[in-house]
């Protein structure tokens, strides 16, 4: 197991954003993390990579207890993530943004090596011709790719993707899905938060469903999309429920 989340709970004041979440993630898989808005998905990422310390439970990454460890600590061990709300380093160039990932991530490269890695990774995510631009001048779709590029440049073992498909058009979604599969084929384990159901159902090996901080279902994409609890959770969002229904009839 590359990652084990054991009984993790997280409160914000009186709000229990996560309640006893437990999951095991074997190496090389893609885990889809779904759930309605405000379910606690991003919070789970924040607990896994050390942005927040959980009040209960433990996070074990590559056999080591990293509960309450700082984000840079887990980054050095090989965990990287993208943000739902993009966090570009605006006044640095696109290349420099990616070099930060390469320099300070798992492989700890020097500037020259980092520059080469940045060129490769930017080519891979399709930002090769933007390398000298300031990151602040990119549009949102490009900033999402930049997030991915920075994470990849650190050569992670585990990659946390927070809604990388949001706001992309169908052809961009298709190409991003290919990119994600290609990353997995390089041996990287992935957890992917996604609202675009057909996409996440297609690439994930397994799905975990959160609702109000509770883990309400877990299983293969097929099992999950037929699970009545999941359909009910999504009934608040009829469109999603309908899409789930359609998926299970396919």
């Amino acid at each position: 197991m590359i990652l084990q989340v054991q009984g993790v709970s997280k409160w914000f004041g009186g709000l229990k954003a996560l309640s006893q979440v437990t999951l095991d993630l074997p190496q090389g898989q893609i885990l889809g993390l779904i759930g309605p808005n405000g379910a606690g998905k991003t919070t789970l990422f924040n607990v896994i990579n050390g942005v927040y310390a959980p009040e209960e439970g433990r996070v074990i990454f590559m056999g080591q207890d990293v509960t309450g460890k700082k984000p840079y600590h887990v980054a050095h061990m090989g965990m990287a993530r993208t943000h739902q709300i993009v966090q570009p380093l605006n006044e640095l160039t696109v290349r420099e943004n990616v070099m930060v990932g390469a320099c300070f991530g798992r492989e700890n490269h020097n500037l020259n090596e980092a520059q080469q890695i940045a060129e490769q990774v930017l080519e891979f995510v399709g930002l090769g011709d933007r390398a000298d631009q300031f990151a602040g001048s990119l549009n949102v779709a490009q900033k999402k790719r930049l997030e991915l590029a920075r994470a990849l440049a650190s050569r992670p073992k585990l990659l946390l993707l927070d809604e990388v498909l949001a706001g992309l058009n169908p052809s961009e979604i298709a190409s991003m899905i290919q990119t994600v599969s290609a990353i997995r084929d390089q041996g990287v384990t992935i957890i992917m938060i996604e609202h675009v159901m057909h996409a996440v159902m297609r690439v994930s090996d397994r799905i975990v469903v959160l609702d109000y901080g509770q883990q309400i279902a877990e299983g293969s994409p097929e099992e999950v999309s037929k699970n009545p609890k999941v359909i009910e959770a999504y009934l608040g969002d009829p469109k999603l429920a309908e899409r789930l229904g359609r998926l299970s009839h396919d």
Partner: peptide, 26 residues
């Protein structure tokens, strides 16, 4: 400014939380 250390500092200046998540020991 032109060192790896400096790149880490610039990252902190731009967004300290994001820098830490990328592995900068802020």
């Amino acid at each position: 400014k032109n060192s790896k250390f400096g790149l880490g500092l610039l990252a902190i200046r731009e967004n300290e939380d994001a820098a830490e998540i990328m592995g900068v020991t802020a």
